[in-house]
Design a protein around this nucleic acid. Structure first.
Lengths: 246, 246
DNA sequence: GGGATCGTGCGGCGCCCGCCGAAACGTCCG
DNA sequence: CGGACGTTTCGGCGGGCGCCGCACGATCCC
């Protein structure tokens, strides 16, 4: 006997403690839905293996699934789990510094990711940190006593950017997210998501290939300079490879 | 072959994916240092087993150790890992609602914990949330656009509470921490730690037995009403059992 | 010095779980 | 309708790892 009562924390951690499942979650941090087969190939395991892993992750509340015909699409269950996995991954990467990129394609892709990428549903990389710094320097975002938009910040979203910033459920309006390439905070939360979505909608940034990496367009560079005084937002160029999506 | 390259995220999660190690970490969330033997008894495993687990956790950067004579004291490595484990535990407990307390002692201890406790180094439970709400209601803490102290809040710490609130390394001044009994946010970060330490120093709250549970003293209740307008801060009474520390 | 107490290294046992292949089911499309 | 494709279920295999007991070293206290 002695069934050693379950520990919820351990059960949750066990879901992420397998290399294959962890790879799935990291891939899904791009915020989009992948099919079971894509994830299987991405992680290098048989389809049957991937299927079992996905069932576990869905059952554990980490992933949400959506079936369409013969496809099974999965995505992260929500911003909360995305944040949790980001935090965990950031902490893990601090302890174990990233190994040198094995291939040239990977190195080029890594450069593009470091320049600008999405982090679930907001901006990250040098671009994400630069935008966050600019907001802070202009008094729109307060970082010295915590992490929150100022009244000027609210006004900036409404007037300058021209978008409504409405509360969405229990999700905080602004939240600090640790950037694992810059090792600094960038803007997450509702404001971060709205900002990222707006830039994508207006064509100010576009996705490179099918991955998480982003490129700032020429109109985007002008807009960012007008709105935030951001100079020389380096465009990652079109050199970068597509990304890890098969 | 096919060593399936290591995934740092999975390695980190694996450390927490064992019931015994998870129990260790949860116990250490009281912010203090435990000896190896205490933890072994607490988790119900042999001393040799505990010793191996502790070595893994220290090696993985989760715990810090300090040897004193024949004792090996361990504590959480810092506020960052404490926050990480709190987040993880909160998310896990949301999915798996807590089972009914098995014994009367446990039930009474749970009541005391729900009323007021420490969460690593800051206040939690109904008391922690009430203090956070009071700060917010008085315009000292801004929660609508993120989570940060206002200028009035800074002044309140200095003038009303009478403590210096100096930046400490990279740790944020204020941070939201999800309270797992109230399912609301309470104040963490440097401000939360300073506030909790101050209340303990002045005898406004005291620890119940050797556990995490806190009790508001009579002078403490008066002070909290004066400083924050907090009325009827229920004292958990002295009925509560000591806690889980052996 | 001697007897408790605390922590650690080593075998050895047993179980859990991640992996695959094969077969079956459902869907899509020609 | 039939073949191609994506996914799921089921055995079965193998390795990893969490557990203990025991022996040993270190420390404290009488």
């Amino acid at each position: 006997m002695t069934v050693t009562a379950r520990v919820p924390l351990a059960d949750l951690a066990a879901l992420l403690a397998d290399g294959t499942r962890a790879r799935f979650c990291l891939a899904l941090l791009d915020g989009r839905a992948w099919t079971a087969g894509e994830l299987a190939r991405h992680a290098g395991v048989a389809a049957s293996t991937a299927s079992e892993h996905l069932s576990l992750l869905v059952r554990g509340g980490i992933l949400a699934e959506e079936r369409q015909g013969r496809h099974r699409y999965v995505r992260l269950a929500g911003p909360r789990v995305a944040q949790l996995i980001e935090d965990l991954a950031a902490h893990a990467d601090l302890a174990a510094p990233a190994p040198p990129p094995p291939t040239l394609r990977a190195a080029s892709s890594a450069r593009a990711m470091a320049a600008a990428r999405t982090c679930y549903d907001h901006l990250a990389g040098r671009l994400g940190v630069a935008v966050t710094d600019a907001l802070t320097a202009r008094g729109l975002l307060r970082q010295d006593t915590g992490f929150a938009l100022s009244d000027d910040g609210l006004a900036w979203f409404a007037a300058d950017l021209g978008v409504r910033l409405a509360p969405r459920g229990r999700r905080p309006m602004a939240k600090a997210c640790l950037d694992w390439t810059e090792r600094r905070h960038h803007l997450a939360g509702v404001a971060g998501a709205v900002l990222c979505a707006t830039l994508l909608e207006r064509g100010w940034v576009t996705r490179i290939g099918t991955g998480r990496a982003l490129r700032v367009t020429a109109p985007g560079a002008r807009a960012l300079e007008d709105l935030l005084g951001l100079k020389s937002v380096e465009s990652a160029g079109s050199e970068a490879a597509a990304g890890s999506r098969p």
